[in-house]
Amino acid sequence: MADLSTFPITTRWPAANPDILQLYSTPTPNGVKVSIMLEETGLAYEPHFINIGQNETWGPEFLSLNPNGKIPAILDPHGPDGKPLALFESGAILIYLAEKTGQFLPTDGAARYETIQWVMLQMGGIGPMFGQLGFFHKFAGKEYEDKRPRDRYLNETKRLLGVLETRLAGREFIMGDEMTIADISIVGWIRALIGFYEAGELVGYDSLTALPAWFDRMMARPAVARGVDIPARP
């Protein structure tokens, strides 16, 4: 049995089974990337719900694992060389889990880096832009009389949707016939954009064809459908 007692986060969120991977997360667009990946790979793991509404990521226990104070983060008792590994940043976790399990990341050099570039597009573009649009469209930002901030993120979101629409034309998934971590990194953000953020009409989502078809294929996968609700909210 692995000993995780040296990791302070386990004092706040104890591991019922310290011999399997520990997930510290919330079912947000960033958080569900990892839960979907874990469900798809079949890797044994134990989810811990982190209440970001109550600022639990800013407590000393969580910060000991991720000094940036953001979900998701993992603690793998069987990391490289058999030693425990603490890891944060959803994109890094996806790559790590893909390499650990040998799934959802091509081993061919060119295809591998092409897949990673789409993950980076999600992290550097899709996530930040969609999130800011959601703020200005649904939350406090909608009270601003000056709509230029909202429109800035709206226009960039539309542009990024166009990039995805073009990429997916004639393809089942981002990389072709097989799902990869690129698809896993993006699906939660599309779901949030048209669902939680209620911005589907604003961005003209129904005018697209390839992207909605891809999204429906992704959400029809049982592991994806499970992953978007993990960890379960109390």
Score class of each variant (00 low, 15 high):
K33R: 13
K33E: 01
V34E: 01
V34K: 04
V34D: 02
S35T: 14
S35C: 10
I36P: 01
M37R: 04
E39L: 07
E39W: 04
G42H: 08
G42R: 10
A44H: 11
P47C: 06
H48D: 07
I52S: 00
Q54G: 00
Q54D: 08
N55K: 12
W58R: 14
P60N: 09
E61F: 12
L63Q: 11
L63N: 06
S64T: 04
S64L: 04
S64Q: 04
L65G: 13
N66M: 06
P67F: 02
P67E: 09
G69M: 01
G69T: 00
K70D: 06
K70S: 08
I71T: 03
P72A: 15
A73F: 04
A73P: 01
I74E: 01
I74A: 03
L75R: 05
L75H: 02
D76V: 01
P77G: 10
P77R: 07
H78P: 02
H78T: 13
G79P: 02
D81N: 15
D81L: 11
G82M: 07
G82S: 08
P84V: 08
P84G: 11
P84Y: 09
L87H: 13
E89H: 03
E89P: 00
E89T: 08
S90H: 08
G91E: 04
G91S: 13
G91K: 07
L94H: 02
I95R: 06
A98Q: 07
E99P: 02
E99N: 14
T101A: 07
F104E: 03
F104R: 05
L105P: 00
L105R: 01
P106V: 05
P106W: 10
P106Y: 01
T107C: 12
T107S: 15
G109P: 06
G109W: 12
A111M: 11
A111E: 13
R112A: 01
R112P: 00
E114H: 12
T115F: 05
I116R: 10
I116K: 09
Q117Y: 07
Q117F: 09
W118D: 03
V119S: 02
V119K: 00
V119C: 06
M120T: 13
M123G: 04
G124S: 14
G125C: 13
I126Q: 13
I126L: 15
G127S: 12
G127A: 15
G127T: 02
G127N: 08
P128Q: 03
F130W: 08
G131H: 08
G134R: 10
F135E: 01
F135V: 06
F135Y: 13
F136D: 05
H137M: 10
K138I: 06
F139N: 05
G141W: 05
G141V: 11
G141I: 09
K142S: 12
K142V: 12
E143M: 15
Y144V: 11
E145F: 07
D146L: 09
D146I: 04
R148Y: 11
R148N: 14
D151C: 09
D151F: 13
